[in-house]
Amino acid sequence: MREYFDFNVMIGKTTVVTIDNLLDVNKLNEEMNRFNIKRALVYHSYSRDYDAYFGDKKLVEEIKDCPNLYVTWTLLPIDIFPINASDKLLEELKINNVKAVRFFPDLHNFLLEEEVIGDLLSLLEEIKIPILMSPNSTGWKDIYSMLKNHPNIRLVLTDLTYRQSSYIFPLLKRYKNVYIELSGYITFLGIETLYKRFGGERMLFGSNLPYKNPGSTIFYIEKADIPEEVKNYIAYKNADRLIQEVSL
């Protein structure tokens, strides 16, 4: 069974609970074992649904004994984040061993305009840290303009849908550091099409736990008509490389 590195996992309680599938660290590890997911990049629900920095610190505390889980911090524009100086933020990211960051612009009520987020993006660009973001929590125009201003950010598009190839292809063509997390990109022959057009180095396995079953994306990858070695890149090698390249 192939090993996997999951680039899209959330732990913690949420405001809305429809089906009881929420995860704490123990439940997450059980799920990871079921699917041979050896490592995962995790964010905390409190960062999304309550307070970014509070959730970020909570995440660090909750996963401190799990070397297989990596920290994703949810950030806000530097003017409204508790750590509102670049050097201090860098220090905090380093101390807390943060390996990726997330933005929820619509949910957290901020714009992706240069005046709002430009300084922070320059900083993140410099340290080569992956930025995870769903186009559904902002908008494609914002993502396009963000990349125009900061073409070297390592942008991982998460929670995509099967209707978004027309937005994705031009970005992959122009920006070498744009990545696709596959859990939502379930377009027909999507993996094969991305591989044929752009190669296999910018696709990442993600489950979107707790909302989706990891089996979905794993089966999609395992049954893709692409070389086995490329499947390894998608399953974990691309993720390992991105994490290793963070320079804090």
Partner: peptide
């Protein structure tokens, strides 16, 4: 919904339940 959506993720979903 195949080919509107790729069929493989749904299979993995059932198999992984």
């Amino acid at each position: 919904d195949f080919p509107f959506i790729d069929p493989r993720p749904a299979i993995g979903w059932v198999k992984g339940s």
